[in-house]
Design a protein around this nucleic acid. Structure first.
Lengths: 140, 140
DNA sequence: GACCTTATTGCAAACGGTTTGCATTTGCAG
DNA sequence: CTGCAAATGCAAACCGTTTGCAATAAGGTC
């Protein structure tokens, strides 16, 4: 059950943050708006180059950083691979990564969240954030 | 509640795997045997150099790889930092990382494990492995 | 629309963690 | 003790990511 993703208006968001909407950014934002998966910087770059051949990978990284700082996207590091991005603002969820395909399935469980809090509590800690990733293989 | 760690006999283990016990390896294995925390390669290297000034970082990495391949240690990547190692063979557990100190506290919860299986099951997946990390701050 | 200031860009170089090629050394089976 | 394969140190390569810099362009102001 993938969480529904309302596509945020990245452009307005950046403008409100006082950032300029440049051509490269338009391209990148459009890609993010259209995408439903969890692409890494290289994938975003590849897609972007098709629209505008002289966009640089550095700009992709810088744009992702700007978006992240403004809470528009989230950065994940699954396994040991490159960072992958997804738009923030959806309800909290964790990830199940298909080890064969790299596909990411989102899921949420209040019970797991509650248990985590309980454990942290017992250890005398306050959870700042957490990471729960299930790596699995599709049953046939 | 840190899981009790029975120190494995790395040396015998490597010998059984047909690997040679060299001076650098002796030093590294001793360090691993003595350590209770989750050191990264650089830390192991630092400690090793004190015993034998000409051990190289490459050898640390190669030794850790050999140990990992033989199931003697586990490699973790907390946050975005360097890989950190711990001896395998202890009962399964997850980690709570103190965001202020980097300290790692181990914990286990059957209930969380069960919930994970349940979720994967529901999604039609079989869990190969998982990663659960709580990042927290000590309450005073 | 032209102008000006400042943010943003592309490029290439630097980065940090990790791996690798190679010539040399070493463990250890025979 | 010898010989050969395995392991070492070193430096260079690697990969994902960040950064310095000079050039370009966004977008507020007139």
């Amino acid at each position: 059950m993938t969480a529904p993703n309302r596509k945020p208006d990245y452009e307005t968001l950046l403008r409100q943050a006082g950032l300029r909407i440049t051509r490269p950014r338009q391209v990148i934002l459009q890609i993010l708006t259209e995408t439903d998966d969890h692409p890494d910087a290289a994938q975003i770059f590849q897609r972007a180059v098709k629209q505008d051949a002289q966009i640089s990978l550095a700009t992709v990284y810088r744009t992702m950083k700007a978006l992240e700082e403004n809470g528009a996207i989230q950065r994940h590091a699954f396994g040991d691979g490159p960072a992958r991005f997804e738009h923030a603002g959806d309800a909290h969820h964790d990830h199940l990564i298909d080890v064969d395909t790299g596909d990411v399935i989102e899921f949420a469980s209040d019970r797991i969240e509650a248990l985590q809090d309980e454990i942290a509590e017992r250890l005398g800690y306050e959870i700042v954030h957490h990471r729960l990733e299930l790596y699995g293989r599709k049953k046939r």
